[in-house]
């Protein structure tokens, strides 16, 4: 298609680091930006199935900056105690600098300060008002209301920033205002709420009290995340197609991103120590022609290193940069919008 919205690729951040702590990512799942421009990244990590006690702390939040300095990390490893995670999904900051993180296994929202100290958590499993089953996306509006995607109850719940239930909307279904295992959520500056209605292959827009406003569809395959820029353009992580799509408010498709990752600063530092491997990479065809049986979005991305593979989250920072978090390539691609 002709691209009606050009984005400039800026850089790639990340390197795979599984099973150990420190610089690098292990299945990154979401990203958030503090007011002092630090970048926070959830590492979901593959501990649940490959669980080894020594790996437990690799489920963590890594902290870095745009210049790719690794500043540290926090989280108390795998578990259900204070500050621990099992299956962390998403996070967002409130106006006071507190970071809220969902965990779809523990059925909790856990709150840290921006230094990574545990503050408090809430969440009771169930389907009653205020109870949650598989919390996924989270977004906090400019009035510090907290919107949580209640994945397995197929609804959105709105809380105060200390976890008091305000209201909820939605039920299982494919009609307007209904959901099928929703995932990502975004509250824009106008107070509108956008939801990645994952298994209905669409984005839905609501008022901040849950009144239906619009549906956006564009051959999505399980969209996982949505963010809206100041001009009202929607950026959607089309998870099952392994692409990012950009739509205007009329629902017109303006651009599709495949991903164009290059070596990150951390990757270059790693190759500096292993020049033979760098030579092998230089000789490789990173965007190969594939046999027909691999003509699926998953396989194309598994076989084509620069492409997005598992784009779970899209976020925009204060400098109008779009970050695409790739859970399966352990990296983040950054574009100027």
């Amino acid at each position: 298609m002709t691209s009606l919205k050009k984005l400039e690729y800026l850089k790639t951040i990340g390197i795979v680091n599984i099973g150990t702590n420190g610089l690098g990512f292990s299945n990154p799942y979401d990203i958030a930006f503090s007011s002092d421009n630090r970048i926070f990244v959830i590492n979901r990590h593959d501990a649940p199935i490959n669980f080894k006690p020594e790996d437990a702390s690799a489920i963590r939040v890594g902290v870095l900056n745009y210049e790719e300095e690794y500043l540290g990390e926090f989280g108390n490893g795998f578990g259900e105690n204070d500050g621990q995670f099992r299956l962390p999904v998403a996070m967002d900051f409130d106006s006071k600098g507190k970071l809220y993180i969902t965990d779809e296994f523990n059925n909790k929202v856990t709150v840290f300060n921006s230094s990574g100290d545990f503050l408090f958590s809430w969440g009771d499993y169930g389907d009653g008002l205020g109870e949650i089953d598989g919390p996924a996306g989270i977004s906090i509006d400019h009035e510090d209301n907290v919107y949580v995607v209640d994945q397995n109850n197929h609804r959105i719940q709105k809380f105060t920033n200390d976890g008091q239930f305000i209201l909820s909307w939605g039920a299982f279904g494919c009609g307007k205002g209904e959901f099928n295992m929703p995932w990502g959520i975004f509250a824009d500056l106008q107070g509108d709420i956008y939801v990645a209605d994952w298994r209905n292959n669409r984005i839905q827009e609501f008022t901040n009290t849950g009144e239906f406003k619009a549906i956006y569809e564009n051959d999505f395959n399980r969209p996982s995340s949505v963010v809206v820029d100041e001009s009202g353009l929607l950026y959607i992580a089309d998870w099952g197609n392994h692409k990012v799509k950009i739509l205007n408010k009329s629902g017109n498709l303006l651009s599709v991103l495949d991903g164009q990752a290059t070596l990150s600063k951390w990757a270059k530092e790693w190759y500096d120590k292993l020049p033979d491997q760098l030579e092998a990479r230089k000789k490789a065809n990173l965007v190969p022609e594939l046999p027909s049986q691999f003509n699926t979005p998953y396989q194309k991305s598994a076989q084509t290193e620069p492409y997005f593979w598992g784009p779970v989250s899209v976020k925009i920072d204060s400098e109008n940069r779009l970050y695409v978090v790739e859970s399966l390539r352990h990296r983040i691609q950054v574009f100027s919008i």
Partner: peptide, 18 residues
């Protein structure tokens, strides 16, 4: 294809094709 390029780092494994 890409017989010599079998990376684990920097970005995980790249799948193979005949």
């Amino acid at each position: 294809d890409n017989l010599e390029y079998t990376p684990f780092w920097p970005y995980g494994r790249v799948a193979w094709h005949h």
